[in-house]
């Protein structure tokens, strides 16, 4: 396969995560995600494109919490894609796993086949209180009920940056204002999340990948043994004091 210009991806430094949930909130407001009320949450139908999983280790008082932010891994060989009967999800030429809401008919096949469990289904028509209706992001579709949705790497921001670049006649997307970053990356106070183009050798993510891969690096991929080739790399120093058992 010829090398595309862009292959968007993320590097997540788990060692830095403090589970402040800023990314979750930023994502909710950027992407018009419906409010997860207590009721919806108890129905287990909450939608959160990025979630911070929290694992407890040990018993009180010797207790440790570990966090890991999980979002769509934009797999190179995504299991969710081929099972969709109507091409509602496919791999685009920028290396992203995209969801086309119009085509989706809601078989939920993709959600079953996602080992990371990051695809969300609109069981109900989304609703916002009147006070929040004006804060909906005009760049993002409001999804109706009966379709799947998931993290898009804030594709609207990438598109906007590209349009601005072409309007100004620039070859490359300049990113001083970090406008191309997904909302979660910009919101993270500890710089846990890095976003960028893996095909650009000078990007921060490529640098991190180069540095952290290999025998002594901290880099790893989630569920690597499934061969899904995620575009998200996690960094984590192996903690020798970690115990085998952990629970949510």
């Amino acid at each position: 396969m010829s090398k595309e210009k862009e292959k968007w991806g993320m590097v997540i430094d788990v060692d830095k995560c403090i589970s402040c949930q800023a990314c979750v909130v930023a994502c909710q407001s950027e992407n018009n995600i419906p409010i997860n009320s207590e009721d919806i949450f108890n129905q287990r139908r909450a939608i959160e494109w990025i979630r911070v999983e929290r694992y407890w280790e040990g018993e009180f008082p010797d207790v440790k919490a570990r966090f890991i932010p999980i979002l769509c891994q934009h797999c190179g060989e995504a299991p969710c894609e081929p099972v969709c009967p109507v091409f509602a999800t496919y791999h685009n030429e920028e290396g992203m796993n995209v969801q086309v809401y119009n085509r989706c008919i809601g078989t939920r096949f993709c959600a079953n086949n996602c080992p990371y469990h990051v695809r969300y289904f609109n069981f109900w028509e989304p609703e916002w209180p009147d006070s929040l209706k004006n804060q909906l992001n005009p760049d993002v579709t409001v999804r109706s009920r009966g379709i799947m949705e998931k993290c898009t790497f804030c594709i609207q921001r990438i598109r906007r940056s590209k349009i601005e670049a072409s309007r100004d006649g620039r070859e490359e997307v300049q990113d001083e204002a970090r406008s191309i970053n997904p909302a979660c990356v910009n919101a993270c106070p500890t710089e846990t999340l890095y976003f960028g183009n893996f095909n650009d050798e000078n990007s921060k993510v490529s640098e991190l990948k180069k540095k952290e891969n290999g025998d002594h690096g901290r880099g790893y991929k989630l569920l690597d043994e499934l061969g899904t080739e995620p575009n998200v790399i996690y960094l984590k120093k192996v903690d020798p004091s970690a115990k085998e058992e952990a629970h949510a």
């Binding site: 190179g76 894609e81 099972v83 496919y90 791999h91």
Partner: peptide, 9 residues
Amino acid sequence: AFPLVTGGK
């Protein structure tokens, strides 16, 4: 006609 890549197939 629609050469869309899915799952690396």
